[in-house]
Design a protein around this nucleic acid. Structure first.
Lengths: 160, 160
DNA sequence: TATTGTTATACTCTATAACTATA
DNA sequence: TATAGTTATAGAGTATAACAATA
């Protein structure tokens, strides 16, 4: 239907079919990993959006909650963020009274990071959204396949 | 050892342990998906680097090769890139004589995209790198688990 | 009226180098 | 000398709005 009344001239090398093939890409783990991750991530961003919290901010709140008082640079390393880029992230959360920096008495170059009451409350709300997404993923896969997927992913942790 | 000669004062709430826990995050499919994908993607970027080709450029070459003459906007949609951001991508590849735009005779608003000889040669070199990475991933998982992973990923394609 | 490709713009994420204060 | 945190800067990815040409 879409192309039924096209005039095709001699030099016309355009495609007619509507569906575009990804070619060999669709068979690559690397490509599909990126593709699916992007979808899942967008979905997560959307569900966090109402909280005015981006994924990196949320994950930092989680890491501080799991490791109260950890050093700023250790938090950055755990999340795979460079210390230079981590500064603005912490600044913003501190400005919003979600997180607190405290000068370490042991090593006065470093800060330890702590959740404030507001940060804890926001973390709990964000974790609810995260849990809800995780439930949707589990519904798509089933509990057993979800665990299998997690196990398979972990085995890719040391490529390169 | 690391903290053996620290002086801990009364208000010192810093952490002592060296390993930082990701807390509940490590059990979330969404989080681990992002984490592993980032690792695999960095590895891929490094292997493409010598070709002066970024992943998005490579994937566009693949899509054009699989769908010669496809419309610019269809290529953008297939790769999940917005048409506005797609322009500079095609410009760059055309400037390097890898890709060619041709005005469609059927719909003079649109362009059809084609590989040029240099583009085809570069694509083949890039595909070799991609294949090499894929082989490393398969070595980590085994052929069967690689296929299982791909199947599991595909089942997540329609979250949200 | 709607769509294709385009420009302009802004925001996020990431990478690197250089600085300071402390160790 | 080395490390923790910081600043400055630049590149890449992504999102939205508005426009000209064409359907």
């Amino acid at each position: 239907m879409r192309t039924s009344h096209r005039h095709r001239s001699e030099g016309d090398t355009d495609r007619i079919q509507a569906e575009i093939s990804l070619g060999p890409l669709a068979g690559y783990v690397g490509f599909m990993l990126r593709r699916i991750q992007t979808t899942v991530f967008s979905d997560f961003i959307a569900s966090l959006g109402e909280l005015d919290l981006r994924p990196a901010q949320y994950s930092l709140l989680e890491v501080i909650d799991a490791n109260p008082g950890l050093r700023q640079s250790d938090a950055a390393a755990a999340l795979g963020i460079q210390k230079a880029n981590f500064v603005a992230l912490v600044n913003e959360l501190e400005r919003r009274a979600l997180v607190q920096r405290r000068r370490s008495t042991a090593d006065r170059r470093s800060y330890s990071l702590h959740l404030q009451a507001r940060g804890r409350r926001l973390l709990e709300a964000a974790r609810d959204r995260h849990d809800a997404q995780e439930s949707r993923l589990r519904a798509l896969l089933g509990a057993q396949d979800r665990d299998r997927l997690l196990a398979l992913l972990n085995r890719l942790a040391d490529v390169s």
